[in-house]
Simulated scan of single mutants.
Amino acid sequence: MNIIKQSVLQSAENSKYFKYIIFEDVVTSTQTIAKEKLFEIENSFVVSSLHQTQGVGRFKREFESPDNCGFYSTFVVRPNVNRDKLMQFNLFIALAITKTIERFINRPIGIKWPNDIYVEGKKLCGFLTEMIPDGQFDTIVCGIGVNIFNSPSEVGKKAALETFADEEIDVGAFVKTLFQNIEKYYDLFLKNDFSMIRDTYVSYSTVLGKEIIITTPSEQYEATAIDIDDFGILKVIDRDGQIKSVLSADIEE
Rank of each mutant, 00 (worst) to 15 (best):
G145V: 00
F18M: 03
E168C: 10
F231D: 14
K35Y: 01
F45L: 06
T200A: 14
A173R: 15
V146R: 02
D230Y: 11
T74H: 05
N43C: 03
T30M: 07
I169H: 09
T139Y: 00
F231A: 09
A249L: 02
V8H: 03
E219F: 01
M131C: 10
A159K: 05
T129M: 06
I243D: 00
G209Y: 14
D230E: 15
V46S: 00
E24A: 09
M196E: 14
A249Y: 00
F127G: 01
A165R: 12
I182F: 08
K112W: 04
A223G: 03
N2V: 07
D238Y: 03
E222T: 14
D134I: 06
K16G: 07
I251C: 03
D166G: 15
L50Q: 00
D84G: 13
G135V: 08
K60V: 11
S29G: 07
Y17F: 03
K16E: 13
F18V: 01
E42T: 07
K123S: 10
F194G: 05
F23M: 07
K235L: 14
T139F: 04
A34P: 05
L124I: 13
T100W: 03
E162D: 12
D166N: 15
V207P: 09
F75E: 00
T53E: 12
I226R: 10
F92V: 02
G126E: 02
F75Q: 10
C69K: 10
S203N: 13
V77C: 07
K235G: 08
V26E: 14
A12I: 08
I21W: 06
L190S: 06
